[in-house]
Amino acid sequence: MKTPGFWYRPDGPAARLLSPLGALYGLAGRLRRACTTPRRAPVPVICIGNLVAGGAGKTPVAIAVAAALKDRGRAVGFLTRGHGGAERGPLAVDLARHDTAAVGDEALLLAAHAPTWVARDRAAGAQAAAAAGAGLLILDDGFQNPHLHKDLSLVVVDGAVGFGNGRLVPAGPLREPVAEGLARADAVVVMGEDRAGIAALAAPLPVLHARLEPTAEAAALRERPVLAFAGIGRPEKFFATLRDLGALVVEAVPFPDHHPFTPNEVMRLAERAAALGATPVTTAKDAARLPEAARAMVRVLPVTVAWRDPAALDRLLDRVAPPVPESV
């Protein structure tokens, strides 16, 4: 789905017209949570979620948290729904066998960093992952899913746009009211500059500040003409990252979130870039959805999460996953 522009503009006619549907959406979620008893997994579960539909930076944060847990000597596994994939699971992702049609783009990104399980039934997925040796699970998304108990929940928020117009889907981007969501969270992660006053809204919860930072190899794009394209929640964020890096974005092409690229689409993008004397560039998540034969035609912008205060993350992880003592 392409994110409606009015979601991130001041309240307007479309948002007001759709607000009754948003109220019903919120009521359905509230009833679902009230009528469900979460099941505990055999191992601790850390949820990386958000309150809005679309991208806020959850997957990069999940990967960064996994790296921090590995440094603590923990055997980490990822658990995800596999959005966009046909497999219902529980299924261990195999990068040699599975593609986005089977398990979705996020599962492939996660599996490059740690063992990953796809499961529509998150509680069953947690059981399967623990049986396979995961000592701790990171739930990528699933904050609104009531079936699995979370031992630690981090809500990720895009600092540039916050919670948009403050209305519920489809009148706005919210999956649930902000106050209700934050009441179940243990901490908030603000991605990028906090231009929306998220820290004040989140009080008294701990607020971690982080940003997506291109890796060293991305420096090759500086002062280079690029045709940027992305099918993520907010493609504009990717385009801004390229500009901040110093790339010359001569054309920016947005696609709907999780868009499945066809060979013809990629060829047209490559031909358009060639006509502009530019390099076609996309995100790592989009690259997972490119036809395999077309991937060599496109440059990927790799990013990592940089924490303003890594010790703040350590204090949160201490609650559920203290460092494993080194053996003598």
Rank of each mutant, 00 (worst) to 15 (best):
L212D: 07
E271I: 02
N145A: 15
F261N: 09
I232K: 03
G22H: 13
K58W: 14
R122G: 05
P322R: 11
P260S: 10
V305P: 02
A185E: 00
R224H: 09
V93C: 06
G73S: 12
V320A: 06
T59Y: 04
H259K: 02
V52Y: 03
P260R: 09
G26R: 08
F261E: 13
H209A: 05
K150M: 04
A134E: 13
F238D: 08
V156H: 01
D318P: 02
L152E: 07
L269T: 10
G197E: 07
R40V: 12
V328M: 07
L317C: 04
R120G: 13
I48Y: 05
D140P: 15
P38T: 06
K2Y: 00
G26N: 07
V189A: 07
A28H: 14
G54W: 04
P90K: 03
V207Y: 02
A68K: 12
A202C: 02
A179W: 10
P146Q: 10
R175G: 10
V303H: 04
D151K: 11
V305S: 00
E213V: 15
G192Q: 11
A252G: 02
A66S: 14
P10M: 06
R88V: 11
E265Y: 01
P170I: 02
V266I: 15
D94H: 12
G233I: 03
L269E: 06
